[in-house]
Simulated scan of single mutants.
Amino acid sequence: MHVYRGLVRPLRPGPLRWLWYALGGGLPPRYREWVLYDASRDRWVLRHFVRSALQISLVSLPILMLVPGPAWGRWSALLLGWLVGLQYALWFMDGSVERRVRRAGYPPGALQAARDALHAEERAAAAARYAARYRSGDPR
């Protein structure tokens, strides 16, 4: 683990292990904390879509190179495939990320607890602002 901008960041996998992880493979137990870190930080949605795009791109090149027909047909099929693939990635995002965390050895609900802990101070400050504004009788 190392500290970056006040946050303790766990050991990150190397590029080849991350590629395997992005394609759906599991990581060794020493990266267990990183999986939870990766799934609970602020840009977890973006990272989920990067992993999904990587998986879709593996199918894209063979479609362009091997499927017979005009180029516009292959490109339009590819575009529609990307749209459907990203739509499924959106629909199953929460379950997919939860499954990655559970495969790393965490119990169900650990991901949401980590996200809640990350944003606890922000929520407390927002609740205090709300209480100060609306419970004091000042309608500003």
Rank of each mutant, 00 (worst) to 15 (best):
M1N: 15
V3Q: 06
G6K: 06
V8Y: 05
P10Q: 03
L11E: 02
L11K: 04
R12F: 04
P15K: 07
P15G: 08
P15Q: 05
L16K: 11
R17H: 08
L19Q: 06
Y21I: 03
Y21C: 01
A22W: 00
G26R: 08
L27I: 03
P28I: 02
P29A: 12
Y31V: 09
R32F: 07
R32M: 05
W34H: 14
V35Q: 07
L36T: 05
S40Q: 07
D42V: 06
W44E: 12
H48R: 05
F49D: 13
L54I: 14
Q55S: 07
Q55H: 09
I56V: 01
S60R: 11
S60K: 06
I63K: 12
M65Y: 08
M65L: 12
L66F: 10
V67P: 05
P68N: 05
P70Y: 00
G73K: 07
S76N: 10
L78Q: 02
G81I: 00
W82C: 05
W82M: 03
L86A: 15
L86S: 14
Q87H: 13
A89T: 00
A89S: 09
F92D: 08
F92H: 08
D94I: 15
D94W: 14
V97C: 15
E98H: 13
R99A: 10
R99H: 15
R100M: 14
R100I: 08
R103Q: 09
A104F: 02
Y106I: 10
P108N: 14
G109S: 11
G109Q: 10
A110Q: 08
L111A: 14
A113M: 12
A114P: 06
A114R: 09
A114S: 02
L118E: 11
H119Y: 10
E121M: 05
E121I: 09
E122I: 11
A124D: 13
A128T: 11
A128E: 15
A132H: 00
R135M: 02
S136V: 13
S136E: 09
G137L: 10
D138T: 14
D138V: 15
P139F: 13
P139S: 12
P139I: 10
